[in-house]
Write a protein that binds this DNA or RNA. Structure first.
Lengths: 212, 212
DNA sequence: GCAGGCATCAACCGATCGGTGGAGGGGGGA
DNA sequence: TCCCCCCTCCACCGATCGGTTGATGCCTGC
């Protein structure tokens, strides 16, 4: 007879107790998956997943304290064998790309059906990449538009000013537009570059040859 | 007989009325210098100096609204013949270097003796560079340590993290130090790079080959 | 003619950052 | 030995930034 596989040891990391309970419930009916712990933020998640007793982590991204992306980075270092499956509400470039680059094995949205979630955990455990369609789109989009001028002229102007240390207010004056518009351009280019702040945007700008 | 030179037309830009009055008083006794106007911030200063009726601008740096550095940049564009003499209280790298790079003809501190101030205005009018000793030191220091690892190991680590978009808090966790220490490192490297914020620091980092 | 990209602006909010002024320990060069 | 540099940490503050939502006008391509 076939020896039963040991269950997949799953850690749930999410700041909302209700979500954690819901996830627990979903997996409680599955003998192949055992929820071995929960954590309410990234730091706790890293701590619990670093002891070798976890196979897969279901990781939320936006959490108070240490966020998911940082946690994933740390886990790549401290527990490389742990697979991290991102499970979050958002699928913007700025969420998906950093998470994938940090080393997430998969990326699902919280509106995914239960079955898909269960299948994804199994797939992640086998090391397979599981991307929600919208997340896959972002990743591919990133590949397709690698360096090119994905930024509009105006966005590039703003980025250049920011790289020179101008504040939003100063940039607005120099471009003869309002500060609100500068912020809008920034938010757009953050999304396009897959970053969350001006410093990282400048860095991406250099990496892609937009600045320099 | 020698035709008397027309007086030097001087514009005073400083947000403190008292300082403006003091400066006016200093030059009132000098027939070679005529104070032709005052402004309380950079924007007003640029406007008044752009009409061709000003020879030299005495410019403060830190002012509400548009600061002095930005005003100097704009003047380089709109009224290149106007000489700008910076007169400020501070002489840190972060003040001196941007001002000089923006195109200031001179840099004096407010504790300078009256005579030096008057001499400086005349020198600036002739296009001569006038630097307060401490300011000259910063400029030379910049020349001496052009690219090299003027940053300490720790500062460079912090800069790299910042370029990756990590917040101070996250960087602190990753380096196992407190957030306060991260901020200290940042302030130090801002000074060394001659910038005022993380975005510009990242840019300088790439320009100097510290990043990328 | 209408969808969609681009540029513009507004208001509000919490989080983060930058500025300032200390303080103390450790290590290396003068 | 003494001083300076580096690294560490604290607390307070105002300024700025980033997030969010929603809206308008223009132009181009379908």
């Amino acid at each position: 007879m076939t020896r039963p596989e040991p269950p997949i040891r799953l850690l749930i990391v999410d700041d909302h107790p209700i979500v954690r309970d819901g996830l627990r419930g979903i997996f409680s009916g599955d003998p192949d998956v055992e929820v071995v712990g929960e954590a309410a933020d990234g730091a706790e998640g890293v701590a619990r997943a670093s002891d070798g007793a976890v196979d897969v982590v279901l990781m939320d991204l936006r959490m108070p304290g240490m966020g998911g992306v940082e946690a994933i980075r740390l886990l790549r270092d401290r527990a490389p064998r742990v697979r991290v499956l991102v499970l979050t509400t958002y699928d913007t470039d700025a969420d998906v790309l950093p998470a994938v680059e940090a080393g997430a094995t998969g990326y699902l949205l919280k509106d995914a059906p239960r079955e898909e979630l269960i299948r994804a955990v199994r797939a992640a455990h086998r090391g397979q990449t599981v991307l929600a369609p919208s997340a896959a789109e972002k990743v591919l989009g990133r590949m397709r538009a690698p360096a090119a001028g994905s930024l509009t002229d105006r966005e590039l102007e703003v980025l250049r000013l920011v790289a020179d240390g101008t504040t939003n207010r100063e940039a607005a004056r120099q471009l003869f537009i309002s500060e609100a518009t500068v912020k809008t351009h920034l938010l757009h280019l953050y999304d396009k570059l897959g970053v969350r702040d001006r410093a990282a945007a400048v860095s991406e700008g250099y990496k892609r040859g937009l600045l320099g």
